[in-house]
Design a protein around this nucleic acid. Structure first.
Lengths: 126, 126
DNA sequence: AAAACTGTATCAAATGATTAATACAATAAT
DNA sequence: ATTATTGTATTAATCATTTGATACAGTTTT
């Protein structure tokens, strides 16, 4: 359980991404209030300071808004959320193909490997 | 230039992967002697101790072999190299799809996004 | 034989991440 | 009004990573 945090990357950075993902995939809805720093820290089994750092860094992106002493809210700007979702997805795709090419695979080989290893994509052919 | 090392992950770990990739994609050929610790450290603009750590950890995988005071060689076991290549590729694919699903994309949507964002894969359809 | 080069080991110092223990001011709940 | 809860700030301690400066015992090279 907990939050599946690795030790091979700064924890605050992993937490940031987790929360970002929860917003993007709708676990935290637009306009909804986030759990408090202390609650989230407890949930993730992490020091409040670490959670605080993750949240305040995430705030720079505009996805969450802080009301000084009444808590944090998810932005109501659904366009921004969807935009961020797409940005991350595209970055993910580019990084994936870059990594695979660096390993020495051609585009065709990559697609073939996907076909062989992705259950539902068996309809794909080059 | 240099080796494009980030500060968001331990450097020795990034170096390890870089060298592994060079072996897998054939920049360092099977049986070929690797540059010395000090040479590699200089090339990566990194402390020799850090490079030493990366190399000795990489050695556990069996991809490189150390001859105590005459240097390091890439293994001649091409099957092992190809096997490692495929293992890494498959892990890469699984991680990619897991990340995309966590963002909220279905398999079909992922494939569509790939089509839209990967230059040479425009022949693909679901 | 001498010099240069191998991997390896060790010690100290600097830095960043993380935890821990508090504290404070502003708001919400009672 | 009082209490509890908010985000935030501060300070110290701990830990892993990284650098730096050496040193040593074997191989090659000359």
């Amino acid at each position: 359980m907990a939050w599946e945090l690795n030790s091979d990357r700064p924890i605050y950075s992993q937490i940031l991404e987790k929360i970002q993902t929860r917003i993007i995939c709708g676990i935290y809805q637009p306009g909804e209030r986030l759990p408090s720093v202390r609650e989230l820290a407890a949930e993730a089994s992490v020091n409040p300071n670490t959670m605080q750092r993750a949240l305040s860094e995430l705030e720079h992106s505009g996805l969450i808004i802080t009301q000084r002493s009444s808590g944090r809210m998810v932005t109501e700007d659904t366009q921004m959320i969807q935009g961020t979702k797409r940005e991350i997805a595209i970055a993910e795709i580019k990084a994936f193909f870059a990594n695979m090419r660096e390993l020495g695979y051609s585009s065709e080989e990559i697609l073939q490997l996907i076909n062989e290893n992705q259950p539902r994509s068996d309809a794909l052919t080059q």
